[in-house]
């Protein structure tokens, strides 16, 4: 299972410092084919930085990184696109890889934004844009997907569908996924390996192991126990905005 040729990217005690401040340090993790590794942690804990180290965007890093693939799909957390550029969704889809029209359609259908194909990228809503970003990243059938909060701004039902899609992609393409998410519930159900960051790796392991970890509980407070219980019982209800229980 853990033979070396399955490893897509591996960080060995990696860290990154900017303006004499450590954004993250001493992170060791690896992403293997067909596995989902999820980074969780509070704001400013170095999740995005860790992803950028793994991607090779940050170059002067401490520690080392081994990368065994060039077929990478990336969904950044923030993307600033200059609208002096006239860019339609279908132009954006072929940004880094020449894929044909059928492949574009297939990817857009998967994330439910086929109808936006000829629209200008600047006219999309936040959630629509997020779906296009994800669609572009998976369209090139990557070996490694790095998804930095891929469903931010997506509506609730869409969020669940997209996480299911991410899980499916990992299985069908046998690609490794490095996922950053705030949605602890989804994380715990779909992930193979969780890394909990707070400037450094505070704990890591399988979702159940991490949920039981005391450092994890300190970091996430009450939510930690909630997630644990969520993980151990099957949901038969949903919560409304006020916190009331709605029976399904």
């Amino acid at each position: 299972m853990n033979s070396d040729n399955n490893i897509l990217v591996k960080l060995n005690n990696a860290g990154f410092r900017q303006n004499n401040k450590w954004l993250v340090e001493d992170v060791s993790l690896q992403v293997e084919k067909g596995k989902i590794v999820t980074l969780i942690g509070p704001n400013g804990s170095g999740k995005s930085t860790t992803a950028k180290i793994a991607l090779g965007i940050y170059k002067n890093i401490e520690g080392s990184i081994e990368k065994n693939t060039n077929k990478i799909g990336y969904v950044p957390q923030k993307i600033s696109i200059d609208w002096t550029l006239p860019l339609r969704v279908k132009d954006f889809m072929v940004l880094t890889e020449n894929i044909n029209d059928d492949q574009i359609n297939e990817a857009l259908l998967l994330t439910g934004v086929m109808h936006l194909k000829n629209k200008n990228l600047g006219n999309l809503s936040g959630g629509e844009f997020q779906r296009v970003l994800l669609s572009r990243a998976i369209s090139k059938k990557p070996e490694l997907l790095v998804l930095d909060e891929p469903v931010q701004g997506v509506d609730y039902t869409g969020e669940i569908a997209l996480y299911a899609l991410i899980k499916k992609i990992s299985d069908t393409l046998n690609c490794g996924i490095l996922l950053i998410s705030h949605d602890l519930h989804t994380v715990m159900t779909a992930t193979d390996h969780v890394v909990c960051l707070n400037g450094h790796v505070c704990c890591s392991g399988s979702p159940t192991d991490v949920a039981k970890n005391s450092e994890y509980k300190t970091l996430f407070g009450e939510q930690a126990s909630q997630i644990l219980s969520v993980y151990e019982h099957k949901h038969d209800h949903e919560h409304s905005d006020e916190g009331r229980i709605k029976k399904n």
């Binding site: 990478i72 799909g73 950044p76 993307i79 550029l85 880094t96 890889e97």
Partner: peptide
């Protein structure tokens, strides 16, 4: 054209995906 255009749209995407 490809790498130049991709990095004009977004530098980090182009860098991350090896262009």
């Amino acid at each position: 054209w490809k790498p130049l255009f991709a990095s004009t749209v977004n530098y980090e995407l182009a860098e991350a995906e090896g262009l």
